[in-house]
Nucleic acid binder design. Structure first.
Length: 240
DNA sequence: AAACTCTCACTGGG
DNA sequence: GCCCAGTGAGAGTT
């Protein structure tokens, strides 16, 4: 099975899989965080960049703060005329003038809160992109998931990247090429599987979302929550 | 087109 | 080999 796995170096110091991770790695030597290289992942029409953005200690603190301060929407979604309890919790935050449409209804994002500004500031620093909107998904355990989809909302700034930041449980994340889906698939392109770690950043760059669907599949053995934030650049109203 | 569920076939561990 | 839980993927849904 093709699978990209990038581990925090300190997690597997001697190749001993059972060994607990080292504590306080980022305090050693006075570094604020370990220097971790980013990994480019490329395939036809796919361009990703994966790296650890926050140290363990920072990520732990942010996770706690998110759990305390983020308030989620009611978890119902309408599809094919039917209402479903969506298998996760979801909310959007963003600049006040922005709106977005979901299931034919126009919503406004909630105003920014300090912990989200903190993450956003780090993203600007590290990627140079000024995101103005974030979708937060909370998966309470491995039963919570999201089906295959593309992030192709009309409100997105064309060709802008999406920054996916993860806290909490490590989960598999799968990409499938649009031409390799369904019975009448015209091509055979292997799915790409990643593991998204606590404190990690996955940049999904153009044109990934044109050709590739992604999903967070069920993983029954995962018992802990995962919080994912996808930062986007949305166009102001009336500029479509 | 669709951020869903369902079902069925396959697989790997015990 | 058998069983079962976990999984992936196609079908159905307005």
């Amino acid at each position: 099975m093709d699978r990209f796995v990038v581990k925090r170096p300190a997690e597997d110091p001697g190749g001993d899989g059972k060994k607990p991770r080292l504590e306080d790695e980022e305090e050693a030597g006075g570094l604020s965080r370990p220097s971790v290289p980013s990994q480019e992942i490329r395939a036809q029409g796919l361009s990703l960049e994966y790296r650890l953005l926050f140290s363990r200690a920072e990520a732990d603190a942010i996770y706690q703060q998110l759990e305390k301060e983020v308030e989620y929407f009611e978890g119902k979604g309408r599809m094919f005329g039917k209402w479903h309890q969506i298998p996760r919790k979801q909310v959007t935050y963003g600049d006040p003038e922005l709106t977005y449409t979901y299931s034919g209804v126009t919503f406004s994002p909630k105003p920014w809160i300090p912990v989200l500004n903190h993450i956003r500031d780090r993203l600007v620093l590290e990627t140079g992109h000024a995101f103005n909107f974030v979708v937060i998904n909370r998966y309470k355990d491995g039963e919570d998931h999201i089906g295959e989809h593309r992030d192709d909302e009309k409100e997105l700034v064309p060709r802008s990247p999406i920054a996916s930041v993860t806290f909490g449980a490590c989960r598999d994340f799968v990409f499938r090429h649009c031409d390799s889906r369904g019975k009448n698939a015209t091509r055979h392109i292997k799915p790409i599987r990643l593991q998204l770690e606590h404190g990690s950043l996955l940049m999904m760059k153009y044109p990934t979302n044109v050709y590739w669907y992604h999903s967070l599949p069920i993983r029954r053995r995962v018992l802990a929550p995962r919080i994912n934030l996808t930062f986007r650049k949305m166009m102001p109203v009336g500029n479509k």
